[in-house]
């Protein structure tokens, strides 16, 4: 069982939860940008939580399944289609041998996740299947997918039940508010600087990628200079270099750095940042550490409980005045 890559899309990589335990030697964790969408995708196809999936960016790939498979597409809506018919997101879908999954363009968000029952079965490197592009390791030969690639898929036992994510648990990627805990180096900024950071609106620039999101907006005033003695950078750490504009550090971030970090994005909102595109706006809102940990714990619970059986029904392709509609008929 495997997947043929007919068209790789813009930036499609194999990712799992990340490569942990090697940051002390300078190895970035890599891994999925949107952890919620990743976990959900794996759950929908009955995978255990650490399996590898495909992360697609903006322009999705065209893939062919060499055997019947159970797949799920989650994350940003890049308009997935199966053999030319819209494929519903956030639910388990059976696809038959020879079917082609393709994408028509971004409707919302930036990154979609494709999970297949059995997981993408590339070799583990340092305990992870995640692709770290700069380090040229993990995933498929340490690189993004290319036309003609073949991705092996792991074995599955039995066919799990068809699920979907409860509609009220599907993330709203249009939200502009990103919650942060101040620190660890908020004392490097004036109170005016902190006010600017928390009250103004910032815009995502084109120089944003898996390493970091560079934002532009009102300058944040430093109080003690823009250099610290280099130290470890947490996921979501917000560095403010001398130019005064924030950079949110993401999964491919360097492990250490010498700019002061005014605040840290709470873990659940990393998934939201991961789905932002250049030009999108971000407003930071402060929460206390206690609130952040409470939000984290309920988010982890939601990750576990966000599923329900997929409603039974039949899908029809209906053409009305030249427009093709995908219609689901359910029993009520």
């Amino acid at each position: 069982m495997g997947i043929m890559v007919h068209n790789p899309g813009l930036l499609t990589t194999v990712q799992d939860a990340g490569r942990f335990g090697y940051q002390h030697i300078g190895m970035p964790t890599a891994g999925v940008m949107d952890f919620f969408a990743y976990q959900a995708a794996n759950r929908l196809v009955g995978n255990s939580s650490g399996e590898a999936v495909l992360e697609c960016t903006l322009v999705g790939p065209t893939l062919e399944f060499t055997e019947d498979a159970l797949v799920a597409v989650t994350g940003g809506d890049l308009s997935p289609q199966l053999d030319g018919m819209p494929l519903p997101m956030w639910e388990s879908c059976l696809v038959s041998r020879g079917s082609k999954l393709s994408f028509q363009g971004v409707r919302s968000g930036a990154r979609a996740y494709i999970a297949v029952a059995g997981g993408i079965d590339v070799p583990l490197v340092m305990g992870s299947r995640s692709t770290y592009l700069r380090g040229k390791l993990g995933g498929l030969e340490g690189r993004k997918l290319r036309q003609g690639d073949y991705l092996p898929v792991g074995k599955t036992d039995g066919r799990p039940s068809l699920l979907r994510v409860k509609p009220d648990c599907i993330p709203d990627y249009s939200r502009e508010t990103v919650r942060v805990v101040l620190g660890p180096q908020d004392d490097y900024f004036t109170s005016e600087g902190i006010k600017t950071f928390l009250n103004e609106t910032y815009e995502v620039t084109k120089n944003s990628d898996r390493m970091g999101y560079r934002l532009t907006g009102p300058t944040i005033e430093h109080g003690k200079g823009a250099d610290i003695i280099s130290d470890g950078i947490p996921l979501g750490g917000i560095q403010v270099p001398g130019h005064g504009e924030p950079i949110i550090m993401m999964v491919d971030r360097q492990t250490t750095g010498g700019y002061p970090k005014i605040a840290t994005v709470i873990t659940p909102d990393i998934s939201l940042v991961a789905q932002k595109n250049p030009g999108d706006r971000i407003k930071f809102a402060q929460v206390t550490l206690e609130e952040a940990q409470e939000i984290y714990r309920s988010w982890m619970e939601r990750l576990d409980e966000a599923y329900e059986p997929k409603p039974e029904g039949k899908r029809f392709k209906v053409t009305i005045s030249g427009h093709v509609y995908d219609v689901l008929v359910e029993e009520i």
Binding site: V180, V181, G183, P184, Q185, P234, L235, G236, G237, K261, T264, V265, I266, T267, L289, A292, Q293, I295, Y296
Partner: peptide, 8 residues
């Protein structure tokens, strides 16, 4: 000891 978000 300084907090750095919810998990660091």
């Amino acid at each position: 000891i300084l907090p750095a978000g919810d998990s660091n």
